[in-house]
């Protein structure tokens, strides 16, 4: 496969997942702000922006609506939902021959409808917009699952999606680590990850901060847990490696990084998890950044446009 196309698939995976997760996080946060008048909206909004890596406007008191404008609709903010959808679509447009028509049309139609959906959401409330993005992301993932061969194209797409998933769950947890352990917000966190029902059935209704963090970081069965996503990314990478004979260590840096992060979670005593949680989350985030760079170095050796110089001769 062309290195350029592999890169596009990886980023399609990342951007779609980012749009989806951002919508989920925002959905829950915005509604919490609306439902609970006791929250300092400006502070909460700024915390969320910081965690999402989006620069907050300095001279403005933020509320649920302006938060939606920035994280949801902004075409200027690189991390906004609208921008993520556009970026995913741009990448798909440049890699049409490795993306199935169904996937492309899904992304393209999603993108085409964004202005109309924004108009509607401004009238009917932001939830309509977030649901739309989540639904379309689910549809896209479904189409990807049913139309892509399980070859390297699939692996690069899945790798991107898994890497982004880890990143977003980590960001979600970071936005909440300072909450009280008994805060009803923890249920909201689970809802963000689409994990509420599964969690409640697993732990029989007991919402407890430590358990929630454990579930989202370490659960081996739930597909949106960090552990599961890391494992998935690791599998993709090891399958991508065409010459896996390696006697000592891991040949590929990306695989090494992911494997280490995964095994740390895998063999961690659950009760130790909360010890120094913020540092653990930061480390995970760094690991993801480094993994991205390592993957890019190993697989995406596209050359940039070559500028030629024609020297004078005699």
């Amino acid at each position: 496969m062309l290195a350029r196309n592999a890169e596009a698939l990886y980023w399609i995976g990342r951007y779609v997942e980012r749009a989806d997760d951002t919508a989920r996080i925002l959905d829950v946060s915005v509604h919490q702000l609306l439902e609970d008048a006791t929250i300092d909206a400006d502070r909460a909004a700024r915390t969320l922006l910081a965690v999402l890596g989006i620069a907050a406007p300095a001279d403005e008191v933020l509320d649920a609506w302006s938060l939606t404008e920035i994280v949801g609709y902004s075409t200027e903010q690189p991390g906004s939902i609208v921008r993520s959808v556009s970026s995913a679509r741009e990448n798909a447009r440049g890699a049409r021959e490795v993306v199935s028509s169904e996937m492309w049309e899904c992304l393209n139609a999603t993108w085409n409808a964004l202005p109309e959906r924004q108009r509607y959401a401004r009238w009917a409330g932001p939830h309509a917009f977030f649901t739309y993005v989540e639904d379309r992301a689910a549809m896209f993932n479904g189409l990807a699952a049913s139309t892509m061969s399980r070859d390297d194209t699939w692996r690069f797409y899945l790798l991107g999606r898994s890497v982004e998933r880890v990143d977003m769950i980590v960001r979600l947890l970071m936005s909440r680590v300072s909450d009280r352990a008994s805060s009803p917000g923890w249920l909201a966190v689970l809802r963000c990850a689409g994990a509420a029902d599964t969690y409640l059935r697993t732990y029989r209704g007991a919402v407890d901060a430590a358990r929630v963090v454990q579930f989202l970081l370490m659960d081996r069965l739930f597909p949106r847990s960090v552990f599961h996503a890391l494992r998935q990314a690791e599998i993709c990478l090891s399958e991508l490696d065409s010459r896996p004979t390696q006697r000592i260590g891991a040949k590929a840096e990306a695989l090494r990084l992911l494997g280490r992060a995964r095994s740390e979670l895998e063999f961690l005593r659950p009760e130790d998890l909360l010890v120094d949680l913020p540092a653990r989350l930061t480390a995970l985030q760094e690991c993801i950044t480094e993994t991205g760079e390592a993957v890019s170095q190993q697989y995406f050796h596209t050359s940039p446009w070559v500028a030629w110089t024609a020297p004078e001769v005699v």
Binding site: A3, R4, N5, R96, E97, T302, P304, W305
Partner: peptide, 12 residues
């Protein structure tokens, strides 16, 4: 896509 071949740019 219809021919099932790679679509390349000059830099590829």
């Amino acid at each position: 896509r219809q021919m099932g071949v790679e679509l390349v740019e000059g830099r590829d």
